[in-house]
């Protein structure tokens, strides 16, 4: 079992990450990779030029490890992935890569979904949208919290 959880301040390019992750998934029957992309519009429909993600110097990376580790313990998977960008992210670029590898696809899909729901609500980031109409903090929505609740035993 392997956990790949890390922060990057550089541009996150999913196609460049996919190769090493395929190698890490060797022996699995499937690798699910989800890419979260910075949206060009906010919830109110206003244009968003970029996201700004602030991090805690120690807790943010730990939270990625904790979430990926929880997925490894919960699901029958061989690889859990949580790679997250921080700093300024222009709209249209990747913010996060979440995924899992398993012998069978169902567990990999479930684990990737679990990782994303926890990243949305428990990963230690402070995120704001920046556009022509100003800035807006983005915090977990009711939908995000409901999604998280699906995993509570």
């Amino acid at each position: 079992m392997q956990c790949i959880a890390r922060l990057t301040g550089d541009r996150l390019i999913p196609e460049c990450e996919a190769g090493p992750l395929m190698e890490a998934a060797a022996g699995a029957g499937g690798l699910v990779l989800f890419t979260g992309i910075a949206r060009p519009v906010g919830k109110d429909g206003a244009r968003v030029d970029r996201l700004e993600l602030d991090i805690h110097p120690r807790l943010t990376e730990k939270s990625l490890n904790d979430i990926a580790g929880a997925a490894l313990r919960r699901f029958d998977i061989s690889l859990a992935v949580a790679i997250h960008r921080w700093g300024e992210v222009p709209a249209g670029e990747a913010v996060v890569l979440a995924g899992a590898a398993a012998l069978h696809r169902r567990e990999a899909f479930l684990a990737a979904d679990f990782i994303m729901d926890h990243l949305k609500t428990e990963a230690v980031f402070w995120k704001r949208e920046i556009g022509p109409s100003g800035t807006r903090w983005v915090e977990p929505s009711e939908r995000d919290l409901a999604d998280l609740a699906r995993w509570k035993d």
């Binding site: 996060v96 990243l119 609500t121 428990e122 990963a123 402070w126 983005v138 995000d144």
Partner: peptide, 10 residues
């Protein structure tokens, strides 16, 4: 010590 608002990644 730090004070923080709600966290959110993804």
């Amino acid at each position: 010590i730090a004070f923080i608002s709600a966290v959110s990644g993804g």
